[in-house]
Simulated assay, not measured.
Amino acid sequence: MVSLESLKGKYVYIDVWATWCGPCRGELPYMTKLEEQYAGKDIHFVGLSCDSNKSAWEKRIQKGDIKGIQLCIGPNSDFMQKYLVKGIPRFILLDREGKIVNANAPRPSDPKTSQLFEQLLEK
Rank of each mutant, 00 (worst) to 15 (best):
A105W: 14
N104P: 00
N104A: 12
G87W: 03
G40A: 10
K112N: 15
G22L: 09
N53Y: 02
I73V: 14
Q70K: 13
V46C: 00
T19Q: 12
P108D: 10
A105N: 13
P111K: 14
A56C: 01
S77A: 12
S109E: 11
F117C: 15
Y30Q: 03
E58I: 01
R96M: 12
Q37D: 15
V2P: 00
I14F: 02
F79C: 02
E58P: 02
M80P: 00
L34G: 08
C72V: 13
E97H: 11
A103F: 04
V12T: 15
A18N: 05
L120I: 13
G40H: 12
A56H: 05
T19S: 15
D65A: 07
L84K: 11
P89Q: 05
S52E: 07
C50D: 00
I92P: 03
C72E: 11
L84M: 10
L121W: 14
K10W: 10
Q119V: 13
L4N: 06
P75S: 12
Y83E: 07
R60M: 14
K54C: 00
L48S: 01
P108R: 09
G74S: 08
E36V: 09
V12W: 06
I100D: 07
T32G: 05
S55N: 04
P75Y: 05
A18W: 04
S77V: 10
L7R: 07
L94P: 06
S3E: 02
L48A: 00
E35T: 09
D78M: 06
P111D: 15
I73M: 03
K8G: 07
F45P: 03
I100H: 03
L121C: 13
S109W: 13
I92D: 01
D65F: 08
G98E: 05
L7D: 08
